[in-house]
Design a protein around this nucleic acid. Structure first.
Lengths: 214, 214
DNA sequence: CGACACTTTGAAGAGGTTCAACTGGTGTGG
DNA sequence: CCACACCAGTTGAACCTCTTCAAAGTGTCG
């Protein structure tokens, strides 16, 4: 039997295990999917497009917690209310799964409970990487880390589609848009990347970039 | 029946649910409990003292992921190897629970599986707060946030026992020891705290401190 | 009492922010 | 179809927070 404390080498078929029918509404760019503090009635899965989750401080400073791409789950809270706000970064379609249905499933099927556990553990792992990035990496390293992360998660080779604005990148990386922009031009000046358009990045020296973030 | 997607208002008796006998070795200050990359054979619970978990970059930069106090669990990984190093911050005694025993328990008892899930979700919540702290708060706010967090987790009223060095505080907050020290003296100069000794802090205006971190 | 590690303080420097101006796409209306 | 407006992104310059390097202070333990 599968250990609940182990991620299988081969990814479990999460989608089939958690295949609960749910509406798949479309959201326009920048449209809110749920707000911080609202009752967490559903869990969500990105079908197409991309989603950001974030928190805002009293004075307006924003910290993006995570970007969610096709296939990713989000809004999976242990508490009754959402701790972050979720917005579509581009036009997006999102599957909504009722929490009740999910708990019922988890209560009756061990593999579903393990799938949920695993999603949470994976989120924790990513959040810890985020902490390391924000705590101990320079602006340049953070930008490189984000580009490589996007490449990996969108299964891109050399050519990247950056689905977010400079502001989104900055608020994820704990920087300002100006610093992000300067980091990108500096990478371009050194021949490590090319920027054919604002939202397209070509990784011209992936090895070298990977070495920068170890 | 309890929902696996909900944290109960009243904390579940985790310790009784996860009451698996395990050795309780003592570790001296700065002694390693497990290292990054080692096989994750056990899960740990702090019995007395305090523990830090951290990661180190190639060039020596260290980021402390979390401080663990009496009662806290740590080393609960989903992967086969530990992703962080754990060290005793003070002399500490730590209960070691074999992973195998824990998975067996989780496989047979739903409440144990839920307890583990909850521990992971709680870790995620804390890590997200950490991200917000590092991404969007000033040095002074970070130090205040840490002091209040320690106060809460060690159930201290006005008088605090700070169980870590300035270096530990700095490496948790993404700062240098000098900046931490300056933040503390500045808080003292403003009458918000007192520092009777290096490792004792008196919160003289808790409300005002709480307002600083919202 | 002296040695040693940790902490604090000071001064100079760097990385990132802020504020401002400029550039370049994109979309719309004449 | 071009002109213009508008918004996002880039670039520049001054500033500021935090870091770095150095030295002095404090506490602890043999």
């Amino acid at each position: 039997m599968l250990s609940p404390l182990r991620i299988d080498a081969a990814p479990m078929a999460l989608d089939s295990v958690l295949a609960i029918p749910g509406a798949c509404p479309r959201f326009a760019r920048d449209e809110e999917i749920f707000g911080e503090g609202e009752a967490a009635t559903h869990v969500y899965q990105v079908i197409s497009g991309a989603v950001r989750t974030y928190r805002i401080l009293r004075d307006g400073r924003r910290q993006i917690d995570e970007f969610h791409f096709a296939g990713d789950y989000f809004g999976l809270e242990m508490s009754d209310t959402h701790r972050v706000t979720a917005e579509a970064m581009s036009d997006a379609s999102v599957r909504m799964i009722r929490r009740g249905a999910l708990s019922d499933l988890a209560a009756t099927r061990g593999d579903a409970a393990r799938a949920l556990f695993r999603l949470t553990a994976e989120g924790l792992r990513r959040s810890q990487d985020h902490v390391l990035m924000l705590g101990r990496r320079s602006a340049l390293e953070r930008v490189v880390g984000l580009l490589l992360d996007i490449a990996e998660r969108t299964h891109a080779e050399a050519e990247l589609d950056v689905p977010m604005s400079r502001q989104d990148m900055a608020d994820y990386l704990g920087l300002t848009i100006e610093t992000v922009s300067r980091a990108l031009t500096s990478l371009q000046d050194e021949g490590l990347i090319a920027l054919p358009t604002v939202r397209h990045v070509v990784l011209k020296a992936r090895r070298a970039l990977e070495r920068m973030v170890q």
